[in-house]
Amino acid sequence: MMISIDMYAYASKLKDINPMEKLALAFITLCVCLWANSIIISLAVLLIMTWSTIYQGGIPGTVYLKLLLIPMGFLILGVLTIAIEITPQPYEFLGSIYFFNFYLGVSKAGLITATQLFFRALGAVSCLYYLSLNTPMMDVMSALRKLRCPKLLVEMMSLIYRFIFVFIATAETMIIAQSSRLGYSGILSGYRSLGTLISSIFIRSYQQADKIYTSLESRGYDGELNVLEQHKAYSLIGYLKVFGINIFLISLTAII
């Protein structure tokens, strides 16, 4: 799933927009959505972000929906525990069932809180999806660098990001090699193969790190991974849009 998000980010039509702009849109809107705590605002955020991601970014709707279903599972479970109350006495319940000495029921207030929470969380998730589906990881890191995020942290992020793919490719070939020799044909052999896979990947990673260090050194590495980024056009209109959308959302809260 992570890899497909990465793939869509590089294919997105919004890829070349200044990452700072997208970061601003995602985070300011996210904050407004969390602050407003109203179903209408949450729905508006969800709508705006989904529209931006699908129509402006060109991410396939089915993919987006599937991605949205992932947090939905957790969300529904979490919301259910809020909506359903357990009390010894029946209390303003819209409906309830008697269960031993307790009442399991749903109250109007609980239902409203649950729905609010559900849409609030979904709106927040859509903001984050807007960012991650339209911004390649390297751009996110470049924005973090500009925001004076600690250098070491960003360097670590970029190395981890780069080598996750090498790591996955190595693991994949190893798993294929193991299964081609019936390594995963039974439960016992499966566990044994998994064990050897993990230990050999660990050793491989260690060797890889050593080799990378050597090659960095040969290019004059002196403790800092200095790199230049490509300029991305900075647009005032983009920022105006960010503020426009959020002022609209905030004034919407005032109206309701």
């Binding site: 990881m137 390297m138 970029s158 190395l159 990001y161 780069r162 793919f165 090498v166 890889q208 080799k211 990378i212 050597t214 090659s215 960095l216 991974l225 790199v227 230049l228 980024e229 490509q230």
Partner: peptide, 11 residues
């Protein structure tokens, strides 16, 4: 893969 440390070609 032992030399390219960045996920961006340009960088």
């Amino acid at each position: 893969d032992h030399q390219l440390f960045s996920a961006s070609v340009y960088q």
